[in-house]
Simulated scan of single mutants.
Amino acid sequence: MAKTLALPKDQLVKQALVQMQNTLADNTWTVRQKLALTCRILFENGHDSGLAGQITARGPEQGTYYTQQLGLGFDEITASNLLLVNEDLEVLEGHGIPNPANRFHSWVYRGRPDVNCIIHTHPTHIAALSMLEVPLQVSHMDLCPLYEDCAFLEAWPGVPVGNEEGEIITTALGDKRAILLSHHGQLSTGASIEEACVIAQLIERAAKLQLLAMAAGTIKPILPELGREAHDWISRPKRHGAAFNYYARQNLRQHADCLN
């Protein structure tokens, strides 16, 4: 006989959280490997735009972070060809140079000590939405990790190679995990590489759904209290880890070289 059909929702939520915490396994990849996996995952999910975009993670010392070499696409990144740079973009480990636009990552890391990974890309649907100068509208359950958690920069400050752009983007991001940048792209952050990767995947899907819905009619908002509830339910480290592990398994079938 069923034992849980009369239980209140809050108790069922608590039970589910305990089960996830005790059952979902963490991965054992290194920071370099997870960053390389993230590059391949995003390449396969529409984030590739030639040499545009940067994916970074904090390094072993304060003021350092890993990033890809300028000249390599996301599908060419491996754990071994990543660079370790400092805030001035000087190369501490590796060969080649970083993208000069990495400068604004230095500013975000300085302003957000809770952030350990930054993903900046120009995926198709985000880029299209950014051209309309409208903020992201979160109106579907699956997108709720972005509910009240995606900032919007309406005025394009130009190419982000100067310190001014770093200050502007960091200020606009505030305490949120993601930001839509008009005439530019998206920036996603996370306390972990796994979280940032999942958020980056989600924001591109959100933009695609928004464009489809806008073409069909007027988007209807969800109730704020339900949006916040869904945000907190989905936005948990174990769920981010499980989602990342799934994306990794998908991509390792044809991108196993990224772990080298």
Rank of each mutant, 00 (worst) to 15 (best):
L51F: 15
W29I: 03
L211K: 06
K14G: 11
L143N: 09
T78Q: 07
A256E: 06
T218P: 07
P221D: 08
C117H: 02
V198G: 02
G227L: 01
M141C: 06
M131R: 04
L143Y: 02
G158N: 00
E165K: 13
I168Y: 04
E90F: 14
T4Y: 12
A172D: 10
Y247A: 10
D149S: 08
I179N: 09
Q69A: 13
D114F: 04
F244C: 00
M214S: 14
Q250I: 08
T171A: 08
L181Y: 05
G217I: 07
C197E: 10
E167R: 13
H122T: 00
R32E: 08
A230E: 07
H183R: 15
G71M: 02
Q19G: 09
A215N: 10
T171S: 07
H125P: 02
Q11N: 14
S192T: 12
L84S: 13
T4A: 04
R253H: 12
A215G: 12
E204V: 11
N260V: 06
R236L: 04
N27D: 14
P123L: 02
H47F: 09
I219S: 01
L143G: 05
G217T: 03
T38M: 11
G96L: 05
K34L: 00
F74E: 01
K176N: 12
Y65I: 00
L211I: 14
D26R: 15
Q21S: 14
P160M: 08
A216C: 08
T171P: 00
V138P: 13
T64K: 13
F244L: 04
L136T: 06
F104N: 06
I168E: 04
M20E: 14
G53V: 05
G174Q: 09
L181N: 04
E194R: 07
M1E: 12
H125R: 03
L24P: 03
V85H: 00
E194Y: 00
A191M: 15
